[in-house]
Amino acid sequence: MAAGRPQEEVATLVRAAAAGDASAWESLVARFSGLVWSVVRGHQLTRADSADVFQTTWLRLVEHIDRLHAPEQVGSWLATTARRECLRAACAHGRSVPVDEAMLVLFGWSDDYSPEHAVLEAEQVQLDAARAERLWQALADLPPRCRQLLRVLMASPPPGYTEIAAALGMPVGSIGPTRARCLQRLRQQLAGQVSELASRAHDNQQAGREGTRAG
């Protein structure tokens, strides 16, 4: 494919896939899976619902690929479709995620993909693992709109503002300010964690001293 602007490249892939080119379809899956997944994960659905929404979104595109009004905007189309399907799943099965599953949602996809496992796989130093988990915990504690926005920002490759707007159902113009506000809230959340840890350590120290005195 001739190198062009990313949007033109995407439009070219969409047209090729619509004409039956399976490798063009694979490229679209590779390019936009991270975006679709980030939209789904921001909604904290159960594991089964997350998988269904992800799969339904791609199946929908198969049927619609030759009738998209703006092929270069397929990322926004996917994000919008995924968001609507998340709402449908929430209506069908309720928003509540069982506690044990909530932990899985928090710490990754499946039983065999624990953070510890991830650490081993990535061969990262312990400090990085602790930092990543702190970030993840802080993210989970944010209000839903902020969590959804930041989770979409985290998609890889990074989505454009029109795709983020589609994922949130917000005007493009309000993404920038909302992003800044949500990142600020995340910082506050992280600071709160740190002070909580510090006060817990302090309490433990106190308890330790009292224990010594009592004994």
Partner: peptide, 15 residues
């Protein structure tokens, strides 16, 4: 902060 978040997601919650 955003790039740290992206790194954490790729690590803890990949597709």
């Amino acid at each position: 902060l955003e790039s740290m978040l992206r790194e954490a997601a790729a690590w803890l919650d990949p597709v």
